[in-house]
Simulated scan of single mutants.
Amino acid sequence: MTRLAYQYVVLRCVPRVDREEFLNVGVVVYCQAQDFLQVAWDVDADRLRALDARIDVDQVRDALRFVEGVCAGDERGGAAGAHPIGQRFGFLKAPKSTVIQPGPVHGGVTTDPARQLEHLLDCLVG
């Protein structure tokens, strides 16, 4: 089995930046060796509303669908989706002041990036 290096960021929903509270809602995994860039996400509306009762959960889901488009390199990702895969990951891992923010970049090795993504989603979001 070939061990492949990968990087990942956890996507955080930050309903109110002034309170510095967040909820992990997704994970983006990038494996350069396999041209792999995917996101997996799960939005728990009740937990988000516990942080801010006024949060627009549909807007959070729309933002995560945008991330899907960037990863896929399709029209859902707008102009960012048109760039090479490494630049798309760079765009997704860059700090933002929006409701969806990436955490720090982490790395590891795996034999199966897709399975690693599901594992990270279960451990860090679910």
Rank of each mutant, 00 (worst) to 15 (best):
M1L: 09
M1V: 11
T2M: 09
R3K: 14
A5I: 02
V9G: 14
V10I: 12
L11S: 02
R12K: 13
R12F: 00
V14L: 07
V14G: 12
P15W: 07
D18S: 12
R19A: 09
R19N: 11
E20F: 11
E21Q: 13
F22K: 02
L23C: 14
V25I: 11
V25R: 05
G26R: 00
V27Q: 00
V27D: 00
V27R: 00
V27P: 00
V29H: 03
Y30W: 15
Y30V: 09
Q32C: 15
Q32T: 09
Q34P: 02
D35Q: 07
F36E: 01
F36S: 03
F36L: 06
L37K: 05
A40W: 01
W41T: 07
W41Q: 03
D42N: 09
D44I: 00
A45Y: 00
A45I: 01
D46A: 04
R47H: 05
L48Q: 01
A50H: 01
D52A: 04
A53K: 12
A53L: 06
R54C: 02
I55L: 10
V57A: 06
D58F: 06
D58V: 15
Q59T: 02
V60F: 10
V60C: 10
V60R: 11
R61P: 01
R61A: 12
R61V: 07
D62W: 09
D62K: 11
A63C: 08
A63Q: 12
L64T: 01
L64R: 04
R65D: 15
R65H: 15
F66Y: 14
F66Q: 05
V67I: 13
G69H: 10
G69S: 04
G69C: 05
A72Y: 06
A72M: 15
A72E: 14
A72I: 08
E75H: 13
E75T: 06
G77N: 08
G77I: 03
G77H: 07
G78A: 14
A79T: 04
A79Q: 10
A79G: 02
A80L: 14
G81A: 06
A82F: 05
P84T: 06
I85Y: 14
G86Y: 15
G86I: 00
Q87N: 04
Q87F: 03
G90C: 12
F91I: 07
K93W: 03
K93C: 10
K93P: 02
P95K: 06
S97Q: 11
S97K: 07
T98N: 11
I100W: 01
Q101M: 09
G103W: 13
G103Q: 12
P104H: 13
V105W: 10
V105T: 07
H106R: 15
G107W: 11
G108H: 03
G108Q: 05
V109R: 13
V109D: 15
V109A: 14
T110Y: 06
T110V: 12
T110Q: 12
T111K: 12
D112E: 11
A114P: 02
A114V: 01
A114Q: 15
R115Y: 05
Q116C: 11
Q116K: 15
L117R: 15
L117P: 05
L117G: 02
L117M: 11
E118Q: 14
E118G: 03
H119Y: 08
D122Q: 14
D122F: 03
D122S: 12
C123F: 06
C123V: 09
V125F: 04
G126W: 08
